[in-house]
């Protein structure tokens, strides 16, 4: 049974390492689903989705770097 728990922990760890980072990604996806419904088929949708995710990655990494140096 212990290895089953370890497997469950490993699988959770596959997706979530930093809770706020994972939360921000999910939140952006939820926001974007709503925005996308308003402007379906827009050419900017793909790049905009990527831009938001890229911004989340940048913010998370820089925040971690700042916290490390405080």
């Amino acid at each position: 049974m212990r290895w089953l728990k370890s497997i469950a922990r490993e699988i959770y760890g596959l997706f979530v390492d930093d809770g706020s980072f994972a939360g921000a990604i999910v939140a952006w996806l939820v926001i974007f689903v709503t925005l996308q419904r308003e402007a379906e088929g827009a050419r900017w949708a793909g790049p905009a989705l990527f831009a938001g995710l890229g911004a989340i990655l940048i913010e998370s990494v820089l925040r971690f770097a700042r916290q490390r140096t405080k």
Binding site: L14, F15, V16, D17, D18, F21, A22, I25, V26, L29, L53, I56, L57, S60, V61, F64, A65, R68
Partner: peptide, 22 residues
């Protein structure tokens, strides 16, 4: 897609932090 995205972004973030020596 969301699961793979979470999985991939987590790895990428860690790889950046490792490469930067953090």
């Amino acid at each position: 897609g969301a699961m793979i995205l979470l999985f991939g972004m987590r790895w990428l973030r860690k790889a950046i932090l490792r490469a930067a020596g953090l």
